[in-house]
Design a protein around this nucleic acid. Structure first.
Lengths: 148, 148
DNA sequence: CTATTGTTGACCTATTTAATCAAGATTATC
DNA sequence: GATAATCTTGATTAAATAGGTCAACAATAG
């Protein structure tokens, strides 16, 4: 039941951009450095986030990315959905036709409950919430800061 | 965020055995057939469940497996834990030393909440609960029954 | 003894993950 | 308009994991 690096890195990248909103465009290079992610791989992930409108990008010198929507309007469940696909632990939860026993299988129902539960958590948290949580953490531990 | 076949097949195998408790020993061959799982692969999975005491096994002719504990005493969270490992979506939730930013990372906390939420669902359901749910389903659809 | 059934170690293959590389497109600045 | 910085994208790849197979073995009822 692990989440992949795509979802993890992508969430962290969005949070990184959100934390630096007031600094204008953020370069992938800087995100890669502060988040300790390979730049090339980050490009892949950011491309997905740009395509879905979470980020906007500007090419050329002094270019970079910025939030495409207000952080309070970005639910983490949406981000994970884009990067990881459905949170259904088994495919028959989303599409009963993929399993011949779907209609009368007690375990399938249970996996559905697990999915609902996870989604509930991630739908209740926005990028703005993450920003605030992170800022609170940085205040209480001022020495540790990934952005310099 | 998918659960692997090990967890899925294992849960279904346990449920299968639980549903046939009154029939004495259940042979892997029969479980494999009714659950449509490769016998060889099922052996692998059952071996784990036997080692952890969820099942007991008897070799030889007319041998098979039986529940090692009362179904009401088997939480599905335990089963998944044995077959899939921790439900933590990222490893730093269980072991902060695996991530240099663990102590001051808002996303890590969020993954922790996801884990708690999933565990909450699976801790609240026992094998006995699954048996009852399944029996209720079979009653309402008497024609469809994997056990003849 | 023999047939049946579970056990185990070794092995294998396909898929997914997690990148990497290189060529290309865009644009600010000089 | 040349240049350099920056994002974009298709091709490729190495490593890990999932999922499964095989064969030799151990136990035991009859």
């Amino acid at each position: 039941m692990k989440i992949s690096t795509k979802g993890r890195y992508g969430t962290r990248a969005l949070l990184d951009v959100a934390l630096r909103q007031n600094e204008g465009l953020v370069q992938l290079k800087d995100i890669a450095e502060s988040q300790q992610i390979s730049l090339h791989y980050l490009e892949r992930i950011v491309a997905l986030l740009v395509k879905k409108g979470f980020l906007t990008s500007t090419r050329g010198p002094a270019g970079g990315v910025a939030l495409g929507r207000h952080p309070a309007d970005i639910k983490i469940s949406e981000v994970i959905s884009v990067l990881e696909g459905s949170m259904a632990p088994v495919s028959c939860v989303d599409d009963p036709s993929t399993c011949s026993r779907a209609g009368f299988c007690a375990t399938c129902d249970l996996w559905g409950e697990v999915k609902e539960s996870m989604e509930g958590v991630l739908e209740a948290v926005t990028l703005q919430d993450l920003v605030e949580r992170q800022q609170k953490k940085l205040e209480s531990q001022p020495r540790i800061n990934t952005h310099e």
